[in-house]
Amino acid sequence: MNLSTDIWVWVGVFLTFCIYSFLYRDNPFYKFGEHLFVGVSNAFTLSFMVHRIIIPILVRPFTEAWRTAGSEGLSAGLFNPYAPSNFLVIIPGVIGCFYFARFIPGLTWLVRIPIALFMGYYVGRSVPAYLEGSVFPQMRGTMLTQASFDPAQGGILGGIFALLVLVGVIGTLTYFFFSKEHKGVVKWGAQTGIVFVMVGFGASFGFTVMARVSLAIGRFIFILRDALGIVT
């Protein structure tokens, strides 16, 4: 055994046990850890946001433009939004401040402007990206073609597997298609689909077990190795 002499390691051990105490039952130590996590993680995010985004992207370009204007006078360059230091950077700053309008009665609607800009940009970009990146290639990947039976793709066996994927995709889509009653052909399609869905969910369960166990292993390695020095 080689106990750690780093006080922070023991703080980490204490906090780990605070959270693990929940396994016994809900208790003040767990609640303490939970609230501490929220408090510290938000402070951390705020600090990074201020030092890495607000100061370099908003404050610095503006103050530098101010300084330049003071020493060299106003010029058109200081109003060029693409210049590294410019006064126009204040506009996104003001739009960002509209978020706080929700606390000002009568001006709450202003909060919609930054939301509209953000959503508009994301939604507009996403439509072609989702089509080109997900829908078309995934549909193409499902198609059964002569190439599916190519010896390089696994030959006849590869072709059979590709056929299975095609049947599975159609079946799954049919199973989740609720606009038509599951009767006749649709029923058969849906029943085929649920077989694939169940196997898929089983696989997801297996992988989820693996994920959660890995996280617990990480914590125990920390306690046994970093704190207690029992394992090397």
Partner: peptide, 30 residues
């Protein structure tokens, strides 16, 4: 094999359904 064949088929079906739904919502927003 489970991951590459039945799982892929199920996840692809679900993913296609979700993506088409999301796209429809995006177009409604736009």
């Amino acid at each position: 094999w489970i991951m590459e064949v039945p799982n892929t088929a199920a996840k692809r079906g679900i993913e296609l359904g979700i993506t088409l739904g999301v796209l429809a919502t995006f177009l409604k927003i736009l």
